[in-house]
Design a protein around this nucleic acid. Structure first.
Lengths: 147, 147
DNA sequence: ATCAATTTGGCGAATGATTATCCAAAGAAA
DNA sequence: TTTCTTTGGATAATCATTCGCCAAATTGAT
């Protein structure tokens, strides 16, 4: 799905739930829909500030909370670091994290759902979701540290 | 490995690095070696307090930091909740977490290392570790909520 | 359009786990 | 013992996130 479409979708589903599409919220939705990476709340906050200088971090968090309610955004919690948000693939999926440059990418790992299904059978758990982070050093940082 | 053996191992490796085996530290190591679950710092702190009532949470964290340095304990970070510690399987392994009773168990999932190896090949990343948490509702809590 | 009712943004303070600082006490070394 | 170093305890600091409050904005009804 392209960014404008995703943006419209986010606005529509916000309105459908009876919330207002205020300028600040619209700005955030636009950023989220356009972002390919996994931005922090602060990063989005700073972008919004360019248009709406009075905006507060609290507002950003409040809007993100609205999106989380209906699973429109995936929140990656990090203890000791800011959380990261993904509004384009808001369902659980693996993340490859470079421990040096902190970049996060989305690798393709198939058979993950099967793992969950098998686990559900063998343990009796009702599986709700998962979080799979793989830590490593990206090729670029490997090159840098060799110098 | 049984708890006493693991305990001796932890004490030995602490001393080997030039650190003192103080009563408070020994108490923590004993708890960690004996624990089968994934206790929080506070839980261990309260156990230590029974023997050494003046102990502080800071001391617990300091000792845990020492263990982390050499990978003797696995720290499971949770944003918005206390971290959990595993001193018996201090290497990355999957965790099955009940979102209701918060119980954490260690399911067996094979082929995880192969996933990492394959990922390393396809992305060029040098894989360092991973974190795999599966969220669900345990059989016990499922029964409870049906009533 | 006007007014009342509701939602929202901004601001500042609160939260809560973890960490840092500082000093006295304990232990090791000489 | 005396000196030097490590450690524990107490307390404050940190930092991302959340909360409470109020004024401003928006909606809906009259």
């Amino acid at each position: 799905m392209d960014a404008p479409t995703r943006f419209e979708q986010l606005v529509a589903q916000l309105k459908a739930r009876g919330y207002r599409a205020t300028p600040q919220r619209v700005a955030l939705l636009k950023i989220i829909a356009a972002s390919t990476g996994h931005p922090t709340a602060t990063q989005m906050y700073e972008q919004i500030r360019e248009q709406f200088p009075t905006t507060t971090l609290a507002t950003v968090y409040k809007t993100l909370a609205l999106l989380k309610e209906t699973g429109q955004v995936l929140e990656l919690e990090f203890s000791g670091a800011e959380n990261r948000y993904d509004g384009n693939k808001p369902y659980p999926h693996p993340h490859l994290i470079c421990v040096q440059c902190k970049q996060i990418s989305d690798p393709t790992i198939d058979a993950l759902d099967q793992v969950a299904a098998r686990l559900s059978r063998s343990t009796g758990y009702k599986i709700i979701g998962h979080r799979f982070d793989i830590y490593g050093i990206c090729p670029q940082c490997q090159r840098k540290s060799k110098k």
